[in-house]
Design a protein around this nucleic acid. Structure first.
Lengths: 322, 322
DNA sequence: TTGTAAGCGTTATCAT
DNA sequence: ATGATAACGCTTACAA
């Protein structure tokens, strides 16, 4: 029998092939241990049913959860997901995008480190941006509502009675102004709180950084009664440094972090933290990409904003009475 | 000019092509924005310079670190690494291995969930096993020395004066007897300590599981003065449950965990834990695979055993005096 | 329903 | 050094 019949059996589960012949072919496939060469198939059809998920740091548990969401959604449509890890390295990021293109991946989900809107467009591969970064107007994007989460956090602290609220920011790989900083400034301005530059410190994205940031804030003549930290690692660093210095938490100092990592739940008391919809971000991003793949010219880029949840735990309370 | 010359320029950086012609070709490539179709290239050459790293749980930080080791080593040789996540799901594991084969990945690094030696052999793709699991005699493997690490940990506790040492094991996805259990039993037998089955409890691999395990041990008529836990999550669960019950740590109870995750370092006091050579495991595994790819019949499978380090921190001390 | 043949974009072989 | 040509393993008109 001919190649075409075999191909038909493999492609359409046997549409347009006589039942008897189909059986015979399938038996032969089993017996010979034949596996179809997807490379050749893809070369012919120009689609691979493969998408790339390109992230800067596989070590970050946030991305791991997102990856699972992407995978689950893609799996349902028969796509496979390959993760690639750029390690905040521009060279690697470009290399992976090139690989995706050269190996004819059908699409790519990316949390970009360096590549900009135009370069990504020039790469000529359907892409969805993970995270609502500025500067990618021509792409679908999915991210969580950092701005709103800061608002909610600062609102929580304010309603507890805090007036002087510190901000410990981590140093970014990217240039653009972080949304959380913007949100903090807006909140302070609008709420008529003391907007004091010395309440904002920037430190490395590490536990030590958090500790250093807190120490700096405590040395102020009029130190804050609460601190919002850019993520949980910083918050934990601040927490431990404060306790080391004999500061009662939350009695004398309130702390809020971001990400709701595992470690945040095991401090004593457990850390109040902003929880992001990690898994759902992955699912939604996958959905957007799948729609683009199905319908090549789908019109304007869509931006999906997913809500965060403030998990109020043990590190926030009323400020001390004077 | 002909396809062949272009191909030569791309393949060998221009060996066997006149300088002038090479320049002209490269200019044309730039101008036309040509990107070589790796699919077609791979179809012809039967190699992709792609390897798959297949792990059961991308959410586990241990694997994330290992992945970085793999990637760094592979990158040096011009290979790209695609991560795949089987999610402890047998179907997915098989599907990914099939994908790797069908898309002609050059090799695969795998921490197997279900697939056994023979099935993996039948898949017909060069493979290296991550972790020294029993049952893969025909494959190269890299793992850490769990047996020795248990020995060292129990030795540490014994030298502090502990005689009754509990063991909190997590429930496995795999069937085989866990090395750490074997090591515990051997140590107890050989050291002439009390070998008491009631000192061994098995619980789900969660924080709650660790807490439950500890409670169970404390209800014994002659409870242990120290507990070795199968990993840090369990250890932290046990730690918090013990403290909740008013038990002084390490004064009244010593605790050791395994993995040295971030959270282990931030308990008060910080957790004594077995640290595994995660990154190095990845590097070594990549090395073994690269050697196999270079030299197809390399002889007998090699097993690489990497040492763990016991990080003695704050949760181990002498047992209470009677 | 089935088979024939062209073609996907490369690389390898062989003349020139 | 260069170019023509076959082949890699598949899919898909088109013809039978």
């Amino acid at each position: 029998m001919s190649k075409s019949s075999v191909s038909r059996v493999l492609a359409n589960e046997g549409v347009g092939v006589a039942e008897a012949k189909r059986k015979r072919i399938q038996r032969a496939i089993k017996q010979l241990g034949y596996v179809r060469n997807e490379l050749a198939s893809s070369l012919r059809t120009d689609r691979t049913k493969l998408v790339m998920l390109l992230i800067p740091d596989i070590t970050n548990p946030t991305w791991a959860e997102t990856a699972r969401g992407v995978q689950d959604a893609m799996d349902e449509e028969g796509y496979d997901v390959m993760f690639a890890n750029s390690d905040w390295n521009e060279r690697r990021e470009l290399a992976f995008i090139a690989k995706a293109k050269q190996n004819r991946f059908d699409g790519i989900l990316i949390n970009p480190v360096q590549i900009d809107n135009d370069a990504l467009l020039a790469a000529g591969i359907p892409a969805v941006i993970l995270g609502l970064l500025k500067g990618y107007p021509q792409f679908d994007a999915v991210g969580s509502d950092n701005y709103a989460s800061v608002n909610e956090s600062l609102g929580h602290l304010t309603s507890l009675g805090h007036r002087r609220i510190g901000l410990i920011m981590g140093m970014r790989h990217r240039k653009s102004t972080p949304t959380r900083l913007t949100a903090y400034l807006d909140f302070m301005r609008e709420s008529g709180n003391s907007l004091d530059d010395s309440l904002i410190v920037t430190v490395p994205f590490t536990q030590e950084g958090g500790g250093k940031g807190l120490k700096q804030l405590r040395e102020l003549s009029d130190p804050p009664t609460a601190v919002f930290c850019d993520n949980d690692i910083l918050a934990i660093g601040a927490f431990l440094a404060a306790r080391e210095a004999g500061v009662q938490i939350p009695g004398e100092l309130s702390i809020i972090g971001v990400d709701d990592i595992f470690a945040a739940s095991i401090t004593t008391p457990p850390l109040t933290s902003v929880s992001k919809p990690k898994y759902e971000t992955g699912r939604q991003a996958a959905r957007l990409l799948l729609e683009r793949l199905r319908d090549h010219d789908l019109g304007l880029p869509r931006k999906v904003l997913l809500p965060c949840t403030l998990k109020i735990r043990g590190t926030t309370a009323e400020p001390p009475h004077r």
